[in-house]
Nucleic acid binder design. Structure first.
Lengths: 338, 338
DNA sequence: TATATTTTCTACAACGTTTACCTACAACGT
DNA sequence: ACGTTGTAGGTAAACGTTGTAGAAAATATA
């Protein structure tokens, strides 16, 4: 049915190994031979059988991407960036969703689909620092966006502390003194949450603004509805504030909605900044200031690191790469009403 | 290195064929043998080599999903639904992005990654009716969300005409008479665009409302910014209207933003309905009425159809399945200001 | 000119599964 | 006693590719 090396070899009048050599850019081939083979490939429309190649070489040509949820814009945009970076290296991407669930993350890391890929990019959410053992799998692994597992595997993250600090400083620049940190979570001292909180703290401290516990508001699931609810709850408790740093954009957008419902003006009464620079922030009313986490840089670097592990250096010590971020100023941060 | 059938066979004291039989649920196996094999599998942590299986059986265990762009919420949610449905059948999903570009769609359909999957789900955007030939590929193919290629392949779509009609009727119910159709496109008479326009026409006709050309506004790329731009342009041309049916949600959200910028109140001055029921419509201000296209039904059915083609019925005539839709009423459609 | 080296190409054996095709035995009806 | 059928398993041959080893031809070196 399908065209194989044998067919090409027959047409070109060479052995199948020579055809294979041409395909794999083996250097010592006469120009005339190469041309004959290439034209035979072209004529027959030959495409290599990836299963056979995979069986023989041990490489499948695909990488896995495990993320919590594609419906979350952040992860959709991350997946987009990963697919692009992978395509540049001729790699296909198999996407799986963990729902941010610990058991499911463990299950996926040891599941049968793992055998279909050469390595995995994992955006952890459910696994905690004590679960590092589950990251010791047989395939190369690069962690995305978290720093909960220092030293357990290669990691590519954003500069959480510095970025949160810069975001907070932007609010301070606009004369905000009582700044709500929306997205803290008590049980997760480590990971993005803890780091962003640390950046928030540093900025306040440097500016000589006291840190108040009531301004640190937890949000368990970083989704829009919980951002809105947390904000409504804060308003109900009559907490006074004039700035909000939300630990991601959808929390910010949910909070924005809750604020506007109660007649709070943005940015006149409350300035607001998010995290992630998802597409939607450019179109909300008002547009949302945010942190561009360097997503494509993260994806590019992660794929590069993974590929490096796949082809060779299996036993280098784990590395950490922090992508550069950028503060994106939009309408939601500006001067206060007098 | 890795555990193979041979290792399991040795430990269980049987031939590799017997192990293979156990794995593939071959019926004639003594219970005691099966148990011995299973415990050997368990003890060694055996997992089948998918490349070898793929080479021998011709099946890879993965399907491809080609969509224009994951950053687009509609496609992200579609991908999510497809991954879920595929997982139920033990299939992995390889996602590729076409950017809605004709050349790239053609390229992907014949590219090397195709050899990695057993079949493809394709959400066409670039290819037109005259390109049907490119759909005749060697793998099973199911088209998603379009009806541009009647009869060229299996298709699973939403009920575009009926849904657009129902959406328009909702606006009419709220006494809107001058309804802007946002998203029409002159060059695409067929496909979602044409069908939705047809539904719009039918609703107006039935209600005895004349159809006016100036109320049919083109939007080339169905993205937020273009929705906003098209709306600004319409406002600049001083077109009068009191209702808007946008051909997808992000166009609607972009338009909503443009309307609000100029002080138009929604729904008091203009009622607005979109298409797709993306998550964001639940959180915009006001929340956006929309059409739930039956996404998970589409995904489930598409995967089912594809699987049916893969295992057997290659030469059934092409089928068309239309998922059921639902009108979702939210704040953006309500009574007019007096 | 003889020898060493490099270039060009080939034959053959894997890789780990599944599929065809056998074998062996028991149970069954005649 | 005989063939027939069903059950439980084994043997060997693919599937299409790449790696190993080496032969043959061309080129460089002595």
């Amino acid at each position: 049915m399908a065209v194989t090396l044998h067919d090409v070899a027959r047409v070109a009048g060479v052995s199948i190994k020579t055809v294979s050599n041409v395909i794999n850019d083996y250097p010592h081939i006469r120009v005339s031979t190469r041309e004959r083979v290439l034209s035979a490939i072209d004529e027959l429309g030959y495409q290599p059988n990836l299963s056979a190649r995979g069986l023989r070489s041990g490489r499948t040509g695909a990488i896995g991407l495990i993320i919590p949820d594609l419906k979350n814009a952040y992860f959709a945009e991350l997946a987009d960036a990963v697919i692009r970076s992978a395509a540049e290296h001729g790699l296909a991407v198999v996407i799986q969703q963990s729902e941010g669930d610990r058991e499911r993350e463990i299950q996926l890391l040891s599941g049968p689909q793992m055998r279909m890929v050469d390595g995995v990019l994992l955006s952890v959410l459910g696994l905690g620092a004590e679960d590092a053992e589950f990251l010791r799998i047989s395939k190369p692994l690069v962690l995305l966006g978290e720093r909960a597992f220092d030293g357990a595997a290669d990691q590519v993250t954003m500069q959480n502390v510095a970025a949160a600090r810069a975001a907070t400083e932007l609010l301070i620049k606009w004369k905000r003194r009582r700044i709500l940190a929306l997205g803290a979570s008590m049980d997760q001292a480590i990971g993005s949450t803890g780091l962003r909180l640390e950046g928030y703290r540093q900025a306040l401290e440097t500016a000589g603004i006291p840190i108040e516990q009531e301004l640190i508001v937890a949000v368990d699931n970083w989704r829009r509805s919980e951002g809105a609810e947390a904000m409504r709850a804060a308003l109900a408790r009559n907490i006074r504030f004039d700035g909000v740093i939300a630990f991601n954009d959808v929390i910010a957008l949910g909070a924005m909605r809750a604020l506007q419902e109660t007649g709070v003006r943005i940015p006149e009464d409350v300035a607001l900044i998010g995290f992630d620079d998802i597409d939607e922030t450019r179109y909300s009313l008002p547009t949302l200031s945010t942190i561009d986490p360097g997503r494509s840089e993260i994806a590019t670097e992660a794929v590069r690191m993974l590929l490096e592990r796949i082809s060779g250096n299996k036993d280098l010590p784990p590395r950490l790469y922090e992508a550069s971020f950028r503060v994106v100023e939009r309408e939601s941060t500006a001067a206060k009403a007098p």
